[in-house]
Design a protein around this nucleic acid. Structure first.
Lengths: 362, 362
DNA sequence: TTGTAAGCGTTATCAC
DNA sequence: GTGATAACGCTTACAA
C-alpha cells in the first residue's frame, strides 16, 4: 500500500532534481552550484560551465520555496479583495484596477498572488492562510476592507497599500480617486449647461465614497449660490436597481428635476432606464450623468457623460508604491489622490459645448 | 551603519514570531505547538488552550514558505498567459476565462498566482522563476503557448492544463471551445436566413483556432450543397483593423457577398465599421456575424449576432481539472470540448426568426 | 575561487 | 499526549 501510494506520488512529481544533485553531478559544492547558477562573478568560468551543463542535463529548476525561505522575500505581491465587490475578476471597474496592478507588478518582475475569497465574510486571517508572510512581500487591498483587518496586516509586518479608497484619520498608504472632485465636476457641468434643479442619487455606504460624492455635489451647488435641498437627494445602494427606484421617485415630483447626478455609471444606467420607462427622454427631458467610465458607458443609449476614473493608473501606482515599500522605502504621503476627467457624451445634453477639460466621443 | 540597516529592516518586518517562540511561551515543544495550532486531535485540551493563547498573544501567523517547503505543496495554481494576447487582464475575452478559473480556485481554497510576463517573448523558464515548483501545484496555460514549453512544464512534474485551445496529437489536457462548431453554427444560421453568397474573414494563425473556424465554415457550406470559393475567403490577423481591410476588399467585389462570417467579435466590429464607411447598411445590405460574445457585442450598433463562448465556464473547468490532477487524480480524456450557443441579435438581420437554440436580446 | 555549515520556519516520524 | 530530531531546498557568511 505504501509502495503504491509512493508510486502514485512519484508519477506526479516525477524526478525533480535539487541543487544538491546538480552540484554532485558537476562535482562541486552546493554553494558553488548556487553561485554559478545565479551568475555571480566570483566563480570560475570552467566551473560555471560544468554546473550549467549539469543543470540543463538534469532539467534543474530551482524550488522557489526553498529560495524564498532562505531569502526572506518572495517578489510577489498579494491581492486581497475588498468587501464592496463580489469578485475582483467579474467587476468591470475593479478588474481594470487589477489590470493596472498586474502590469506594474510584471514590469518590476513581481508576481501577483490573488487570495481566494471563500465566502462573503472570509476573514483576513483566513486570507492570510494563502497570502501571508513568506509568500508575499506586501498586500494590495483593492477596495474597502475593515480598518481592523488592515491594521492587522500591517502589524504582521506586511506593507499594505489600499487602492480606490482610503482610511481617513490613519496613516495607511492609499491610492485613490478624488470622488469629491468628480461629483463636483459633474454637478458643475450640469450647472454650466443651465440646469438649476439638479437631483443627486448618492451611495448610502459607510466608506468615504458615499460622503465624498455627496460633498462634491453640495460644493458645486453652493459655489453656484444654489441651496441644497434634501428633496432632491436620495442615498441608496450602489446598483442599477436602487438607482432606478430612486429615479422613479425623484421624477414623479413636481416640479421634477431637470438633471440627475448619479455616482456610478451602473447607477446612471439604472436611472436612464427608469427615465425611459416613465416616458422621459434623456437628455431632452432629463439629463443624466454617472461616474467611473466603465467600458459599457460609451455604448449606452444615449452614451453616458461621466467622469473617467483612472482605474488602471490607480492600480499601477498602488502596486508600484507597495513594491517600493516592500523594498524598504519609507512611507511617503499617505494618500495619493488622483483626479479623473470629465467625459462629455450625450446623456447630459451638452451638444457641442464640450468643456476644454473634457473629451467627446461616440 | 549595520545597526541602522538592521533597524530599517526591523522597522519594516517588525517582530514576526515563529512557531518556536509560540512554543516557548506556551512551554511546549515546537511539534506540539504545530499540532495544537492545526487542531489535531492528539493534543490535550489544556495544552492546546495554552498554545492558542500564546499564539494570539504574539500575533503569530504561520510562515507559508516554511509550511510549503515542509509539506511539498502550495495549494496554489499558477497561471501562464499565452502568446495570443497582450495582457491577460486587459483582454476582454481572456479575463473572463481568468475570472472563471479564479472562482474555481477560490471554491477549492486555492490561490491564483499569476506569472509576470516581462516581455512579449518571456521564456517559460523565466516564468518559472515565479510560477515554479514549490510555489504552485500546477500550471494553467491560458491561450496559446509553444508546445515545447508546455512539455517542459510537464517534464518538470507540474500538472498542466491548457484552456481555450488544445494541442492536437498530444495528450496534454485541455479545456477548449469548439470553434469549428461555432463557425458552423454561424454560417448555417446565415444560410437559413437565405444567404447564398457568404464571405468568410478567418484568422491567419497557426494554432487550431484558425483551421477549425475555417473548417466549420466549409462544413456548413458543403452540407448546404454550396461550393467553397476562395474568392469569398480572407485569412487575416485577429484584429478589427485587419478585418476592416478584408471587408473593404470583399465588399468591393461584384457581386458583393450578402453576408460576412468573422471569427471574433472584435473582427466583426471592424467589419461593420468598414461596411458603414462604404455606405452599406448592416444588416440590410450585408449581414455580419462574429464569435465570442464579449461584453461589447450586445451594445454595438447594430447589436452583434455571435456565438457565445462559455468563457468563464472554460476557466472554471480547466482550474478544477488542474486541481484534481495536482491532487493525484489520473488524467482523463485529454481534451474537453465545450460548445457555445448562438446568440441572435440584429447584425444578421434575423428579425424575429430567432432559432430555438439562440437567445435574443437587446 | 571553492567548500563548510548554519540557518530560514514549518511539518512529520518516531520514540518516550 | 508530548518532545527530540530529521527533513524540505535554498542562500550566505565565513573559512579554507
Amino acid at each position: 500500500m505504501i509502495v503504491l501510494s509512493k508510486h502514485k506520488h512519484l508519477n506526479i512529481k516525477r524526478f525533480r532534481p535539487t541543487l544538491r544533485e546538480v552540484a554532485a553531478l558537476a562535482g562541486v559544492s552546493q554553494a558553488t552550484a548556487s553561485l554559478a547558477l545565479r551568475g555571480r562573478p566570483a566563480v570560475d568560468a570552467a566551473t560555471r560551465a560544468r554546473v550549467l551543463e549539469a543543470a540543463t542535463q538534469l532539467r534543474y529548476v530551482p524550488n522557489l520555496n526553498g529560495r524564498r525561505l532562505a531569502r526572506g522575500r518572495a517578489e510577489t505581491i498579494g491581492v486581497i479583495q475588498g468587501r464592496n465587490m463580489t469578485t475582483l475578476f467579474s467587476d468591470s471597474f475593479y478588474r481594470m484596477v487589477l489590470a493596472g496592478a498586474g502590469e506594474a507588478a510584471q514590469a518590476a518582475g513581481y508576481s501577483l498572488m490573488i487570495a481566494p475569497t471563500l465566502r462573503k465574510d472570509t476573514s483576513v486571517m483566513e486570507m492570510l492562510e494563502h497570502v501571508g508572510p513568506g509568500t508575499v512581500d506586501g498586500v494590495l487591498v483593492v477596495g474597502v476592507l475593515e480598518q481592523e483587518a488592515i491594521f492587522a496586516l500591517r502589524d504582521l509586518g506586511l506593507p499594505v497599500v489600499v487602492v480606490d479608497t482610503y482610511l481617513p484619520g490613519t496613516d495607511i498608504p492609499a491610492v485613490a480617486h478624488d470622488y469629491r472632485a468628480g461629483a463636483w465636476q459633474l454637478t458643475r457641468h450640469l450647472l454650466q449647461l443651465g440646469h438649476r434643479r439638479i437631483a443627486f442619487v448618492g451611495a448610502d455606504v459607510d466608506y468615504p465614497f458615499g460622503r465624498d460624492t455627496h460633498d462634491g455635489y453640495r460644493d458645486a451647488l453652493s459655489s453656484a449660490g444654489l441651496p441644497y435641498s434634501s428633496v432632491l437627494v436620495r442615498m441608496v445602494a450602489i446598483s442599477a436597481e436602487a438607482a432606478a427606484a430612486a429615479t422613479r421617485d425623484l421624477l414623479s415630483a413636481t416640479p421634477a428635476p431637470t438633471a440627475l447626478v448619479t455616482v456610478t455609471d451602473t447607477m446612471a444606467i439604472g436611472a436612464m432606464r427608469a427615465a425611459h420607462e416613465l416616458g422621459r427622454r434623456v437628455p431632452e427631458d432629463v439629463a443624466v450623468v454617472g461616474m467611473d467610465d466603465i467600458e459599457l458607458s460609451a455604448h449606452t443609449n444615449p452614451p453616458l457623460t461621466t467622469v473617467r476614473v483612472p482605474k488602471e493608473e490607480m492600480g499601477r501606482l498602488a502596486a508600484e508604491r507597495l513594491i517600493a515599500l516592500s523594498r524598504g522605502q519609507q512611507p511617503t504621503p499617505s494618500v495619493l489622490m488622483l483626479s479623473g476627467t470629465l467625459v462629455v457624451r450625450r446623456s447630459c445634453g451638452a451638444g457641442s459645448a464640450g468643456r476644454p477639460t473634457g473629451e467627446v466621443w461616440s
